[in-house]
């Protein structure tokens, strides 16, 4: 039996790596990948608690999270394609048209 603290720490490390990638990188694809990593970290925590507490509901929520992540990836990449058509760049510093 794996201790739940270890699973939670593992989930936290993946989340922080994803946060780092989403905040620090300029390539918009790697920012999206960081967001996917953060969503996965949440799923790991849910599955870990489902395993340690013996509650199957902890395995249902990740299914919804995966669905939302798939929709988020599809819409996010469509937005990237639309912006790339206008700005001809994937550098996130050039996506500043809404900044005041």
């Amino acid at each position: 039996m794996i201790p739940v603290n270890v699973i939670f720490l593992y989930s936290l490390i993946i989340f922080c790596i994803g946060l780092w990638g989403a905040l620090s990188r300029r390539n918009v694809f790697i920012v999206l990948m960081g967001i996917e990593l953060m969503l996965n970290a949440v799923n790991i925590a849910f599955v870990g608690f489902a395993s340690s507490l013996g509650n199957i509901a902890g395995q249902i929520i990740p299914i919804f999270v995966i669905t939302v992540a798939a929709g988020e990836a599809a819409v996010g990449l469509a937005i990237v394609v639309a912006i790339f058509r206008n700005r001809l760049s994937i550098n996130i510093d050039s996506f500043n048209i809404l900044k005041w």
Binding site: T67, A70, G71, E72, A74, V75, L77, A78, I79, V81, A82
Partner: peptide, 12 residues
Amino acid sequence: LLAALVGAVVLA
């Protein structure tokens, strides 16, 4: 999911 599908098609 349906909304995301339509949104992705419209945006891209």
